[in-house]
Design a protein around this nucleic acid. Structure first.
Lengths: 249, 249
DNA sequence: ACAAAAAATGCATTTGTATGCAAAAATTAA
DNA sequence: TTAATTTTTGCATACAAATGCATTTTTTGT
């Protein structure tokens, strides 16, 4: 019996019975359970079924709700951004870039904070639009759809006219030599403009971004005033960063 | 019985009976209460139910989920906007205002439509950012937070520079004498600019908006090319609108 | 505050899974 | 066709997951 036949058999049985059990299939098809498992894993990779402990079940199409943004390690990110809440004060003018860490930050901004926030991230704007005391300005332009942010000259032009007290920049990668780097050119120049427009520059990211690099430079470490990570500021892996003079929260 | 099956069983029972009891489930499924508890905790972590002392209950839709926009009468609105899909063609430049009817419309835009869409509505932009073939431009400005749209001079300036083939305008109120009217002044002037910028003006709304008025005039009926409602175009309550020369879908 | 019920925790047992390896089968190249 | 190569398969082993039980902790109703 060819593998393709077997896969077909498995899929048929799966549709008929809503589930398949590894041991049953091994028995019926007279093959080792290992082979069945390999088959099921293959079919799982092709998204034709869902492998579970002991067998497999039909793929349940999860409602791809656009508005339900999935933040990975949200709890971890909460811990990071909570440290940065002390940087917020009434009447500040703030610029926020995109990124899930900044989104978590936006969620945690206290309801009584009165401030003006500029952003070019759709999810962050959605979040902040729920905030009673924030003057929110969305920076328009062409949408970079996967990241849900606007990019391009329109964005730069607006950002370069802002005079902000503080900006919160998400980080793709950071290291001692190159500083902050980004995978996309367009995002990198927007971030440059943000930094230029702000008195104080804060970047929040988890420690796995440390000592990594991307093609496009945003700024070097000296231009960052504060970085916020999940690590203790005294952590040895931040040693070099501390030396560069950036304040670590 | 596979764990996945059990979870499905529990979820089904939960929906049917609004609650599940740990001891009952243990009895029915012939498993220890420990296993049931572990299951319920797992499902709780996935936010599929809420674990409570003694069992579990349905997740209470928390209103604080910003991203979960509630559209009233969504099915009814789907019927309306489906009629308007025939107005879409490849390579069009489109402007869309905000409003839940337009949001439903955005959801239904075919995946293969290649077009450029301008909007100043956050939810609509979120929706369209999922669309593979649409060039999306968000019109920035100060956010009107309850409506999740940008307003003000920044918006007007951008809109007035667009040359669009068609625009889709949500309607707060419409009547024969004043035409389209809005509750807010700012929204009304943005919509005026939209109309000015577009070759063709389409407005979609349910019949309960007919023959009502709001303080701020957007345009009179003559400036609308097409209106789309839930009613049959021949419906007597559209009689006067038909006479005004507007095309009714 | 107290007793009863439920839940969490650690542990042992069972069961299912991943992985490297060797033999068998299928495929490819000459 | 034959030999070389790749793929598939089954097995042994180490590993991880699931389950039930005993014990401790927490919660609840009175």
């Amino acid at each position: 019996m060819l593998k393709a036949e077997r896969h077909k058999f498995i899929m048929t049985k799966l549709v008929e019975e809503q589930k398949v059990v590894t041991t049953d299939l091994a028995l019926v098809l007279d093959l080792s359970e290992d082979t069945i498992r390999r088959d099921l894993n293959e079919l799982d990779n092709k998204k034709l079924l869902e492998k579970v402990y002991g067998g497999a079940v039909l793929v349940t199409e999860k409602a791809t709700d656009i508005f339900n943004i999935n933040i990975s390690d949200e709890d971890e990110k909460k811990k990071i951004v909570t440290k940065a809440l002390s940087l917020l004060h009434d009447d500040q003018v703030i610029i926020m870039s995109g990124g899930s860490t900044n989104l978590v930050f936006a969620k945690l901004i206290p309801a009584d904070l009165k401030a003006t926030i500029y952003t070019y991230s759709l999810p962050i704007a959605m979040q902040l639009s729920q905030h009673p005391n924030i003057d929110l300005i969305f920076i328009g332009g062409k949408m970079q759809k996967n990241a849900m942010v606007t990019i391009g000259m329109d964005v730069i032009q607006v950002v370069s006219k802002i005079k902000a007290d503080i900006c919160f920049i998400g980080a793709s990668s950071i290291n001692i030599k190159q500083g902050l780097t980004e995978i996309g050119y367009e995002i990198s120049i927007v971030k440059k403009a943000m930094i230029e427009a702000s008195d104080r520059v804060v970047s929040m990211f988890s420690s796995d971004k440390l000592d990594t690099k991307m093609p496009h430079v945003v700024c070097d470490l000296k231009q960052l005033d504060t970085i916020v990570t999940n690590l203790n500021p005294e952590d040895p892996s931040l040693e070099e960063y501390r030396k560069s003079g950036v304040f670590i929260l």
